[in-house]
């Protein structure tokens, strides 16, 4: 019994210490005098590998999810003779929920795992230590550009996801199932609000970007530098980030729309 209490205490202490370490890692990476000349090229490079290279999976997933929404929405709405509301249904589902959430989940799987594995391998091959010994802070040089790249690219990816998804809904709803073209767009336009829907979606996306990128970088930076350690850290990034996104989504939705 006493052992169990001790184990519980140790687990609690470990997780508090882990959270503290993650917080300090981020603070040390982000707080400091910005050196634009050095950090701009690094940021661009990371925006490419984190953001641009994730475009394909985002666009394809967005298109299919939009198409499914169009199809499902139509079959439900047509029973009530409300198929003209297909436009706002597709747009609101995507902008408020599916855009930010699914993008964050895909981002965690595509870019988050890659970030963790890359940093874990840099640690295992002593590249991070060697930066430190050269007097170059790996937090500023390696962690910081990757963090900002994730933070900036995810909201953009989420908007791309939603835009492509709406087009997918249009393809199925209007082109295939014959919902009126004008009604699809005009009802959507009159029902989607800038602040309530689009901006809230972007805010969600920024929060997810912060959390997912932070988790991915922290897991990589703190991983045990062995092959087993890196593989565990990568898995843990995807699992933890996905759960965090879904949990936070509920909280944010409750705050924004509840």
């Amino acid at each position: 019994m006493l052992n169990r209490v001790a184990a519980l205490g140790k687990a609690t202490l470990d997780s508090v210490a882990g959270a503290g370490a993650a917080f300090f890692m981020l603070m040390r990476a982000l707080v400091g005098k910005p050196q634009l000349r050095k950090s701009w090229p690094l940021l661009m490079q990371q925006m490419y590998s984190v953001g641009v290279l994730s475009l394909l999976i985002i666009v394809v997933s967005g298109l299919f999810i939009g198409m499914v929404l169009g199809l499902q929405g139509y079959t439900i709405l047509v029973d009530f003779g409300a198929e003209q509301s297909l436009g706002p249904m597709v747009a609101l589902s995507l902008l408020r929920e599916l855009g930010p959430v699914v993008t964050a989940l895909l981002f965690a799987g595509r870019a988050g795992s890659a970030l963790t594995a890359e940093i874990g391998l840099m640690k295992a091959t002593e590249q991070l230590s060697s930066l430190e010994m050269m007097g170059v802070d790996p937090l500023r040089r390696v962690i910081s550009p990757r963090f900002w790249a994730g933070f900036y690219s995810m909201p953009i990816l989420a908007l791309v996801f939603s835009a492509v998804g709406i087009y997918g809904g249009y393809l199925v709803g209007v082109r295939w199932l014959g919902v009126d073209d004008g009604a699809f767009w005009s009802v959507m336009q009159s029902n989607v609000e800038w602040g309530q829907d689009i901006l809230n979606g972007v805010i969600k996306s920024l929060v997810f970007a912060f959390v997912v990128t932070w988790i991915a970088l922290h897991k990589g930076y703190q991983c045990t530098p062995t092959s087993v350690g890196i593989s565990r850290a990568t898995t843990s990034t995807v699992v933890t980030a996905s759960l965090a996104v879904l949990g936070l989504d509920f909280v944010l939705t409750a705050l924004m729309f509840g």
Binding site: T125, E126, Q127, S129, S130, M133, M134
Partner: peptide
Amino acid sequence: SMLFQSGA
């Protein structure tokens, strides 16, 4: 400076 075993 340090020469790491793996070269790093």
